[in-house]
Simulated assay, not measured.
Amino acid sequence: MAGVRRFGAGGLLVAGAGVCGILALWAAQETVLRGAESVLPRASAPAVLTCAYASAAVGLGFAARNQMRAAAEAAVAALEEEDQKVRPASTAPGHEGHES
């Protein structure tokens, strides 16, 4: 039971750290917004910041997609290579049931 309590306390600490992280991001965004408002019209600053965030999100999304595709291709290549090592030559594709 003590282990369960410790695990629960650890979970609460992780949740608290997450909340603090979100608040830190929010404060950083507010700081950037206030800085943008000092050089841009007050009504334009949020729109410019939104466009910048959206552009970054799209760029990161494309980069993530490319990484995931590369990882999937590498996994397929590794599996095919391992299959060739394990599979005897007589059962290679195109040789089923044909004895020479």
Rank of each mutant, 00 (worst) to 15 (best):
F62P: 00
R34M: 09
A24Q: 10
L23R: 07
A71G: 02
E96T: 01
L33G: 08
A15H: 07
Q84V: 11
V76H: 04
E81S: 13
T31A: 08
G16C: 07
A74E: 06
R65M: 04
C51N: 07
G21F: 09
A57C: 12
R34I: 04
V58P: 02
P93E: 13
M68F: 13
C20M: 11
V39P: 00
A15R: 04
A89L: 12
L23P: 01
R34Q: 14
Q84E: 14
M68C: 08
Q84M: 05
I22T: 11
G21M: 11
G59I: 02
L40W: 01
Q67F: 09
I22G: 05
E80G: 00
A56M: 12
L25N: 12
V19T: 14
A64V: 10
G97S: 04
R42T: 02
I22F: 07
A54D: 04
V76P: 00
G94L: 04
S38A: 13
A64R: 15
L40T: 02
T50S: 11
T91W: 14
V86T: 03
P41F: 15
S55E: 03
L60S: 05
G59V: 09
A15I: 13
V58K: 02
S38R: 11
V14H: 08
L79G: 00
A64E: 02
Q84P: 01
V48D: 00
R42D: 09
L13Q: 12
T91K: 08
A36N: 03
A70K: 06
L40M: 09
A70V: 06
E80Q: 08
N66T: 12
A63V: 08
A52Q: 02
I22Q: 10
P46R: 07
V58A: 10
Q67V: 15
R69L: 13
A36L: 13
